[in-house]
Design a protein around this nucleic acid. Structure first.
Lengths: 137, 137
DNA sequence: ATCCATATTTAGAATAATTCTAAATATGGA
DNA sequence: TCCATATTTAGAATTATTCTAAATATGGAT
């Protein structure tokens, strides 16, 4: 699925030079990770690419966001940026028990603002908080 | 309206000792300010209570939030906490031109999440972004 | 292969918002 | 007045992130 080749191609298509570091980080965020923070990415690179610096983690994430391959999420429950490999518009569900963040297709949340005259809405961001289905042990 | 007396009473009712600093800051956030940050509060106290320290601004805001007299807002467009004197559940509209943040009564935004079985939604936070009515010059 | 311009990566310093700490000050009741 | 407690304070510490300037790597022209 998200093998080195296709990751590489996505980077190139987005105008990003596919260096080994960028491929590694993008691949991690795309497949293994789930809305990681920069320091989660760093913890992963520490295991897999011990020479890769923190600055490169931040630089790379910023490059990927700039290329619209990732999206930054700033959510109220956590004081750091999360990186979302889902770059289409969508909402989020935060499982308050586990802290897990789930992407929600905007089709699944009907939002109808009835604002006063003159207000134009360009974007709608919904954060749902609650509990996910109980997982079997 | 939000005179010293009624502010004082609100503080007491919430179990907060109404010191001069607390009255001043709460009054400012309730009437003059509009979703201020801690440093906006500090800028105001610098004018009006020059001896009041930054630590007190933070302490006081935290006390008021703890007493449910204010609410912390962490929104994605700004990297600092905003303080909202509207402590009931509500949504927000961000005017992308002016940066102004407007409280939106939840009655005015119909939200109908259709999530998979087992998901329980306890809270819904909506941020609308767009343009407000053009103001007359 | 070698050289070079450019891109990438790096370590560490800088920044910004906020919290913490421990001392100083104020307050109100006995 | 005295004292216990609450409040306020200055400044250090913390945390996430960005910046800076130097080091390194890369790929094409010779």
């Amino acid at each position: 699925m998200h093998d080195v080749k296709s990751i590489s191609e996505k980077l190139e298509a987005a105008g990003v030079n596919p260096t080994a570091h960028r491929i590694a980080i993008y691949q991690y965020v795309m497949s293994e990770a789930d809305h990681p923070t920069a320091d989660e990415v760093k913890r992963w690179t520490d295991e897999n690419f011990p020479k890769l610096s923190l600055a490169t983690v931040y630089n790379t994430l910023k490059t990927l966001v700039g290329a619209k391959l990732l999206k930054e999420l700033k959510l109220p429950h956590i004081g750091k940026v999360l990186y979302d490999c889902n770059v289409s518009d969508h909402h989020h569900f935060l499982d308050e028990d586990t802290g897990q963040l789930i992407d929600i297709d905007p089709e699944l949340v009907e939002v109808r603002p009835k604002l006063k005259k003159g207000f134009v809405v360009n974007a709608v961001h919904v954060l749902l908080r609650g509990k996910g289905p109980t997982r079997k042990k």
